[in-house]
Design a protein around this nucleic acid. Structure first.
Length: 273
DNA sequence: TAACACCTGTAA
DNA sequence: TTACAGGTGTTA
């Protein structure tokens, strides 16, 4: 589900509502979501700690706590982290429940593919996937020069490259399709064939689509909700994702849908080369 | 790099 | 009943 703009939207809300609050009690209802500790260890390490700040790197959320351990969360497809002033038992798919000194932080996840990790004192190193993250797609480190250098070394499909979190962190299926459409580059192009000009357009498009996603509070297709449980609005501004069979906003041709390395891919064959 | 696995819900 | 879904790790 969530890509960088969705995770960042959640981060901002959760930070606003939970920073400075103490974790009074933790109810672990689905322990297998915690990947590197058993439930007792997890509960013992975090109970009594104060959430100092909520940070984000790529699609990971870091809840920095006052004690020696912190909490790292990846929402995967259908995870969500919401803050509610009053816990109610009718909240569906609530798997880990943090009772705070004021209000409740709930980890929900319909498909239960999400992950939580207890972060050791030395930080979130050694946690699979985290150490090898590339620069965030909207960070100053993700320059055109960086992209040029990284793209030159591989012949894979550009879409597959953009989805690779070790190359660029934070992009997922929606924003990759949107960025390639805006840059007029086919998802089937091989990385090493991109020209300097195309790489510049691609870079601008990545920054733009992430900015738009953030501006509209994330994209909700089915499940995404921000930290308050509300939907995003960026789905109303998408240009290709989910628009197969409808007219291309540039040429009026028909948006196509094909599978590319297992992912549904939306593009305009006339505009994207 | 492809297929499959992890899961559940929804829509065709 | 089947295919598909904002992701990613493992295996062939």
């Amino acid at each position: 589900m969530p890509e960088l703009p969705e995770v960042e939207t959640v981060r901002a809300y959760i930070h606003q509502y939970t920073a400075g609050k103490k974790i009074m009690h933790i109810d672990v209802r689905l322990a297998r979501l915690i990947k590197n500790a058993d439930a007792d260890t997890f509960i013992h390490a975090l109970t009594g700690q104060t959430i100092e700040a909520v940070k984000r790197r790529g699609k990971y959320l870091l809840l920095q706590c006052s004690g020696s351990h912190s909490l790292l969360v990846h929402l995967r497809m259908t995870g969500s982290l919401i803050y509610v002033p009053h816990w109610q038992e009718n909240i569906k798919a609530a798997h880990i429940i943090f009772s705070l000194q004021e209000g409740t932080l709930v980890y929900r996840d319909i498909r239960t593919l999400g992950c939580l990790w207890l972060v050791p004192p030395q930080g979130p190193t050694g946690i699979q996937g985290y150490d090898t993250l590339g620069p965030d797609g909207n960070s100053p480190a993700c320059t055109t020069a960086y992209l040029r250098q990284a793209l030159a070394g591989t012949q894979r499909y550009i879409k597959s490259f953009l989805l690779d979190q070790t190359k660029i962190a934070g992009l997922g299926n929606i924003y990759v399709d949107e960025a390639l459409f805006l840059a007029h580059i086919s998802p089937f192009r091989r990385c090493h064939t991109l020209t300097q000009e195309e790489i510049e357009h691609l870079h601008d498009a990545i920054v733009h689509v992430l900015h738009e996603g953030l501006k509209y509070g994330g994209t909700t297709i089915q499940n995404f909700v921000n930290g308050s449980g509300r939907e995003g609005q960026n789905q109303n501004h998408l240009l290709v994702y989910g628009r197969e069979g409808t007219p291309c906003v540039f040429c009026g041709g028909t948006i196509q849908y094909k599978k590319l390395t297992g992912r549904g891919t939306h593009y305009c064959p006339h505009c994207q080369h």
